[in-house]
Structure formats: C-alpha cells, structure tokens
Design a protein around this nucleic acid. Structure first.
Length: 362
DNA sequence: GAACCGTGGAT
DNA sequence: TATCCAAGGTT
C-alpha cells in the first residue's frame, strides 16, 4: 500500500537563511574542538566520529585521536590495531576501519589532499556517504553543499509537517529536496552548522524550545501542537536472541587468553574472548588446542541488548597450566588484567574482564 | 528495501 | 528498569 505524503510548502529560501544565520550569530556553537584550526582532516575525523554519536561523547575521543594522529599521513602510516584501540568504546567499529582505509587512499591515490571538490569524489572514500560528504565540504571549504543528518531531518519535518518515517526513500527524497532548497551559496559552513545547532539545542527530540525558535511562527508542527509527532519513528521489530559462551581461560599468572575477532561483523578487528555457540565445540576446542586445560565452571548468563538483537552471554571459566608460550600464533594474545587499557576491547568484554579482576581479589 | 553495525545518555 | 535513539553508511 502507498501512503499519501503531504507535499510541504517551503518557505522563501532567503527569508529562511537570514533568520537562521541571525540566530546562529547569537546562539550558534563555535567552540567545538573540530571548529578550531579547521582542516579537511580534522573536519573529516569529527564527522565520522559524530555519526550516530553524541557530541559530548565524541570530544574526548577526538582530542586523543588528534594527539596521536595529527594529520592524514600519520593515520595512514598507523597499524589498524592502534586505530581500533583509540576507537574502543565509541562503537560502530567499521567507522574506524573505513577511516583508516580512507586515510591510506587519500595519501596514496590523492597525493595527500582530500578530494573536497565534489560530493561524488568524497563519497567514493569508504565511510563517507552523501550527508557526511556535504558536511565535510561545507565545514572545511565553505562551499555550497547540503547535508541531511538527524538534526536537519528533525528541523525540516517539523517545519513542514512532513509525514512518514524519514528512512522511507520517498520521505528522504523530499527532505533532500528541502535541504537543497534552503542551502545558500554563501556562509555555507555557518548555515549547515546552524541547522545542526538548531536541532541539537532548540528543536530537540523531546520538549523542544519553540519559544526561542526563530521559526516559531512558520512551523507547521508547532501550529498544530504536534512537535513531538515529528519526525515519525521507525517501525519496531522484535529482536532475536542469540546465545553464546565466552571463554575466560586463565594461566597461572592470572592472564586471560584473547582472540582477535574477524575483521568484519560485530566488534570486527577488536580483541575479545573466544566465543563458542555450543558446549560441544568448546570441549572439542579445549581438548585440541589447550591440552592440560581444565574447565572450572560457568558464570551466570547476562543479556546484552544491541540495535538488532539480544546477545545472551554465558561466561565459562577455565584454567591452563602453561608450558611455554602457546598459543604462539598471531591473532592470539595473553591479556594482563592489571593493564586494562593496553588493548582494544569491546565494552561488554571489558566489563566481564573487570568483574573477573574484582572477583579474584576476594 | 532491509539487515547489520555499539555505546552511553535521557526518560 | 526497559526503551529509545543520537552529526549514518555499508552490505
């Protein structure tokens, strides 16, 4: 079935820009770390970190990242493992892997210069889509480029009363159309920043500050008293439950065996506890790879909720009397719980290892 | 299209 | 406490 989508009537573009920039000059954010010493590199890294991630969370990661990788050459020359280590806790680790790949591409295919001439050229780099490309161009060069992130979607859907979940292609198409309509030739960096600032500080998801909004008199949602209805939320779906065991294999020093995870998929490229989906596989693996190991017991299971599924994790504790340094193969490491930040660990794994340490002290 | 990919904050 | 969701992109 097809749902009728109300065609929004745009405001006069010049009117909109003037009022928005007037608001920005008084209330806009100008002291964010990536707004200082602006460069395509700094803007790029910030935009990737900010994907689906709040500003307050990003700031610390951004500072540490810039300290370690001041320019694209430094990033391109790094090992992926170190890039992922700096990304630990931010989530969506494909962003870090793509960032690293893109840095190498800029250095080796673009002679070290970011292809900021066009959205198409930027979008060809891994991890950069249409909106992020627009944001980088606008913020780093000031040239005209529309963006359509969550903030802009919220502002535009409310202002025009755009019905339907913005993830639907026809709705998204309409929103891009509106973004194109309003985006100016001049002061484009300020304009795009102003749209995001409006969405982040005034036109918030809940309890928007309509009385302070320069478009209070123009907003369709506000006129109807239906601000909270826009944008429409994504249709809900049941989350499947996956069950797994995580092996905590310790040697005589209390060190824990870690395995480097596959380079794609959940926590791709990070270090984690060896996972087994059934007990038979666990027993067979221990007998084959870790002769002399002894299973000591299971901890109580806990559930970790992800965006698309629930993961029921059963920690299994085992002990190994080590002879030599096995396993010596790459992709395996012994982790010292007394050096917790020496390696990139996913949050639930890190929490598990921390609880292991406190358990031992008792 | 729809599934996949994380974490922490807000309510 | 459980749920929603935030400066999205890739497969």
């Amino acid at each position: 079935m097809s749902t009728f989508i109300e065609a929004p009537q745009p405001l006069d573009a010049e009117y909109f820009r003037t009022r928005l920039l007037g608001w920005f000059d008084q209330y806009g954010r100008t002291h964010l770390p990536w707004q200082q010493g602006r460069s395509p590199y700094r803007v790029w890294v910030s935009e990737i970190m900010l994907q689906q991630t709040q500003v307050a969370t990003v700031i610390g990661y951004f500072e540490r990242f810039m300290q370690r990788f001041p320019d694209v050459a430094a990033l391109a020359a790094a090992e992926q493992d170190e890039v992922l280590h700096l990304w630990t806790g931010l989530g969506y680790y494909a962003r870090a892997r793509n960032l690293h790949r893109a840095a190498k591409c800029v250095v080796h295919e673009h002679n070290g210069a970011f292809p900021v001439e066009s959205v198409a050229a930027l979008s060809a780099l891994p991890g950069i889509g249409r909106s992020t490309a627009g944001a980088i161009i606008a913020q780093a060069t000031g040239k005209r480029a529309p963006i359509l992130d969550g903030n802009v979607k919220r502002v535009l859907t409310r202002l025009h009363g755009v019905e339907g979940w913005p993830g639907r292609p026809e709705v998204e198409r309409r929103l891009w159309q509106l973004a194109e309509h309003y985006t100016p030739q001049w002061r484009c960096a300020d304009f795009t920043q102003a749209m995001m600032d409006m969405g982040a500080t005034l036109c918030t998801r809940r309890r928007p500050s309509c009385l302070l909004c320069p478009f209070e008199a123009d907003c369709v949602a506000h006129a109807r008293g239906e601000e909270q209805r826009f944008p429409e939320s994504k249709p809900k779906k049941e989350k499947p439950v996956r069950k797994t065991m995580m092996l905590m294999l310790r040697d005589e020093n209390g060190h824990v065996l870690l395995e480097q995870r596959p380079s794609s998929g959940l926590w791709g490229g990070l270090w984690g506890l060896p996972q087994f989906d059934d007990g038979g596989a666990l027993d067979a693996w221990l007998a084959r790879e870790m002769p002399g190991s002894e299973v000591q017991g299971r901890w109580s299971s806990f559930v970790h909720v992800f965006t698309h599924f629930r993961l029921e994790i059963t920690p299994v504790q085992a002990h190994l009397s080590r002879q030599g340094d096995q396993p010596a193969a790459s992709g395996w490491r012994w982790y010292d719980p007394d050096q917790p930040d020496s390696i990139g660990l996913a949050a639930p794994v890190k929490a598990l290892l921390e609880s292991l340490s406190s358990f031992t002290l008792l």
